[in-house]
């Protein structure tokens, strides 16, 4: 086939049409992406608003704290002194995990307990519907280290949930005993 024949053939036309559609769509979408982008900061703000209830400034703290029953994933220091924590507890049903968001309340610079526990996600847990708001409110306002809230019929999942909350509680109680080094007030 000569070049001229090729330029007139159906194959060429198909290629051109598809390329044009792709180029136009690509240009349109790139413009829209610039206009409508959601930045990472905005995403964290959305999470904070969902968990904490109000939009508030935050600062992410670097942390890597892990025990054999749980670990801390993220800590955000909020502008009003509290800390928003995401932690994961191990030893759940079928060796799964449960991740929770919780707020570590700080009253006048002193650690004042856990609040606002909500389940973020879980691995292999099948009875998560048993952990209602009533169950989660049992953690609130207490400053202890060893929570043991058990829901009947979901023993393993309760253990994982307790581990998730306890690892955060342990961390913050540990912070109040140490001094300096990482910016927390005792």
């Amino acid at each position: 086939m000569t070049v001229k024949q090729f330029l007139k053939s159906k194959v060429f036309r198909c290629i051109i049409v598809l390329m044009c559609i792709a180029l136009v769509s690509g240009a349109l979408l790139s413009v829209c992406n610039d206009l409508l982008k959601v930045s990472d900061e905005e995403r964290v703000l959305r999470t904070i608003k969902k968990i904490y209830g109000s939009e508030i400034g935050y600062e992410e703290i670097e942390v890597s704290y892990e025990t054999d029953t749980g670990r801390i994933d993220n800590i955000y220091k909020l502008a009003d002194g509290n800390y928003l924590v995401k932690s994961t507890g191990y030893n759940g049903y079928q060796q799964g995990t449960i991740s929770v968001w919780l707020v570590a309340k700080y009253d006048n610079g002193k650690y004042a307990g856990i609040d606002d526990v909500s389940v973020a996600d879980n691995e292999k847990q099948t009875l998560m519907s048993k952990f209602t708001a009533g169950v989660l409110s049992e953690y609130e306002g207490k400053g202890e280290e060893d929570f043991n809230v058990i829901v009947g019929g979901a023993t393993y999942s309760s253990h994982a949930l307790n581990n998730a909350v306890n690892v955060a509680a342990k961390y913050f109680l540990g912070q109040t005993e140490e001094t300096g080094g990482n910016g927390y007030e005792g």
Binding site: K10, R13, C14, V17, L18, I21, A22, S25, L28, L29, C32
Partner: peptide, 20 residues
């Protein structure tokens, strides 16, 4: 749009709007 490539063309157009 030629008949042979109508499905890819349609899918591209639809995908653009879905992404939007």
């Amino acid at each position: 749009i030629p008949g042979e490539v109508r499905i890819p063309a349609f899918v591209m157009i639809i995908a653009t709007f879905v992404t939007l």
